[in-house]
Design a protein around this nucleic acid. Sequence first.
DNA 1: TTTTTAAATGCATCTAAGTCGCATTTAAGA
DNA 2: TCTTAAATGCGACTTAGATGCATTTAAAAA
Lengths: 124, 124
Amino acid sequence: MEIEKIIQDKNLKLTSARKEILEIFLNSQKPLAYEDIKDKITMDKATFYRNISKFEDKAIVHSFESNDKKRYYEIQSTPHAHFICNNCNTIECLQDVINFEIKNHIVQDILIKGICEVCFLKRV
Amino acid sequence: MEIEKIIQDKNLKLTSARKEILEIFLNSQKPLAYEDIKDKITMDKATFYRNISKFEDKAIVHSFESNDKKRYYEIQSTPHAHFICNNCNTIECLQDVINFEIKNHIVQDILIKGICEVCFLKRV
DNA sequence: TTTTTAAATGCATCTAAGTCGCATTTAAGA
DNA sequence: TCTTAAATGCGACTTAGATGCATTTAAAAA
Ligand SMILES: [Mn+2]
Ligand SMILES: [Mn+2]
Ligand SMILES: [Zn+2]
Ligand SMILES: [Zn+2]
């Protein structure tokens, strides 16, 4: 099974907590915070945070902090920027690659904040 | 005096707490968090946060959250992106304008995370 | 299959940046 | 000088996430 392979390929013990977490993130189209999934999982929050942190170490999951002071996680796929609405807090994955270089720097993450389409059109 | 004018032009009461805060930020070349300045100011932290928040409302100050879970503030000047090092947490103001548009969105803030020049050169 | 053990888990407790309620003080206009 | 709304200090509170520790479990060895 896909999920089990991902876990074992990184030399992680195959536990039900880990399968539960990955199942949810693999089926989500958007980044999720602990808050968003706590009712769908059975493990303690300490277990969630310890595992998601391990997934990050192993480059299975990527995360960033949003405006609501919560950390959002998503399966690490092709790198892409995120847009966070300062009005409604919605997070968008920007699939159109924004790329630029900064000499002698490594760009790992791009976070753009502003007003999203929904809020923008409401205000016009 | 410059500082007093900034405060009064925004119809804010001229208090010593406000003068102290602005003095520090006007003389800083980089964004600062409460932690960075708490020993240089005499007011309570509630007063600092209430005032800096008011400065933001009045567009005197601009802020963003960094990797260390702290909010950094700087005098609002020409809009520019910030680079935050995932290794050493240093914050750089990127004066070279990075600009792009996203249709039907308003871009208000650009945060780039990665490896800064110092850390990059150390690793080579 | 049974044994072994390091890693994973649940639960309670802690952390720390930032917020809030309230009594007191102060800026600034009348 | 008097008045009053706004600002301040202080203590208590909030909340996402981290941590210590006793117990459980995956998985490799025997
Ligand atoms: Mn994404
Ligand atoms: Mn800056
Ligand atoms: Zn929005
Ligand atoms: Zn660095």
